[in-house]
Design a protein around this nucleic acid. Structure first.
Lengths: 194, 194
DNA sequence: TTCAAAAATGAACAACCTGTTCATTTTGTT
DNA sequence: AACAAAATGAACAGGTTGTTCATTTTTGAA
């Protein structure tokens, strides 16, 4: 093995594409391995040559999404690491974030909706929170502000951000990433004017 | 029918209790009707006398949760309707909210986690958002602040709040509702100090 | 081009789950 | 006690699962 990596990758991609296509019209639970194979026009046994389960399939796709988005975010963080978390470049950073998320919307639309797998939003949020945590910890201004437990703060912030993304996806991406970033800033300042 | 309502209710409760008990140790997808019946020590056919599906069962339980929590919130809103949304009584209102949620934590713990059904957090958030919307609309201070689309604002706020709840549940309810309310206020003010 | 290894196929398999039916028994109400 | 609703047990066909095995197709390298 290893020499036939291309072939295997292609087959896996075919399975994944077919699977995603089906997930648009029916929920994960009601999709059978047989149907996936039929859609991908391959033998059912071939599926089991690459995945142990339909759960395994979805898990690998989730993992892949997290890795892809994670490396995007890492890249952003190194580029914006100079700025303070709540400083000048916040809107710019947010826009960049919305931009990289926009790229993965087809998958997110499915995984976050009710055709995906239970608990995805938590796994996604946790992955996001980990990135935000390391970003926050580099901000020397952060520590002084104390008083708020990190886990709750992260859960609050990332959930709120994810909520915005969900609404964005639900509205059919009718706004540009830059508009979303501006919207984000407006909401923050709205909450300030209590 | 109707005369035997008690008997039916009891059987349904037995099914629901058994179901919830199983959901603590295994995910919804892997639970079979046969297992539910076995746990509840009844014939499999009896299950089908009360629910068409295991999906039907979960749906009814979700619905029930929304109704219960919804009426609690309605009650709160009428009690706190005098105050402005972001006014003095906000912390008190938040505490009351956390208190009524605390009551439903056993169910929420399951439904929000990865043993539940996909998309629950969205359905829950939507139900919550509807309550918050009507509350916001009564606040005459709200309209003037404009500039932020209602749907995004609601999604942001309710997701953030739900994120706090999720973290609370995850941490095993180690804080009182009042502490959570204080925490909530602290986070809000933390975000202000940018 | 040839050839061996890897991948895909088709078919079969037992085991399980589903939803429904039906005759029978148990339970609750009057 | 008598009637009606609820629960039972058993059976049913239809479908899904994951695995096996012999066979064919595809692939990359000699």
């Amino acid at each position: 093995m290893g020499i036939y990596a291309d072939k295997n990758r292609k087959t896996k991609q075919l399975i994944q594409r077919s699977f995603m296509q089906m997930l648009e019209s029916k929920p994960f639970e009601s999709i059978t391995v047989g149907e996936i194979a039929k859609t991908a026009q391959m033998n059912r046994g071939t599926f089991y040559l690459h995945y142990t389960d339909k759960f395994d399939l979805l898990e690998q796709m989730e993992q892949q999404l997290f890795e892809d988005l994670g490396s995007h975010i890492d890249e952003l963080q190194s580029r914006y690491s100079v700025m303070h978390t709540f400083g000048e470049g916040q809107e710019e950073l947010a826009a960049a974030l919305f931009r990289s998320i926009q790229f993965h919307v087809p998958a997110l639309k499915i995984f976050l909706g009710d055709h995906g797998r239970a608990g995805f939003h938590i796994r996604f949020r946790d992955a996001l929170a980990e990135k935000v945590r390391s970003h926050l910890e580099k901000d020397e201004n952060f520590h002084a502000k104390g008083k708020v437990p990190m886990d709750y703060l992260l859960s609050f912030i990332t959930s709120a951000f994810l909520g915005l993304i969900e609404q964005w996806v639900r509205n059919g991406l009718e706004k540009t990433p830059e508009e979303m970033a501006a919207l984000y800033m407006n909401i923050i300042s709205f909450i300030q004017k209590r």
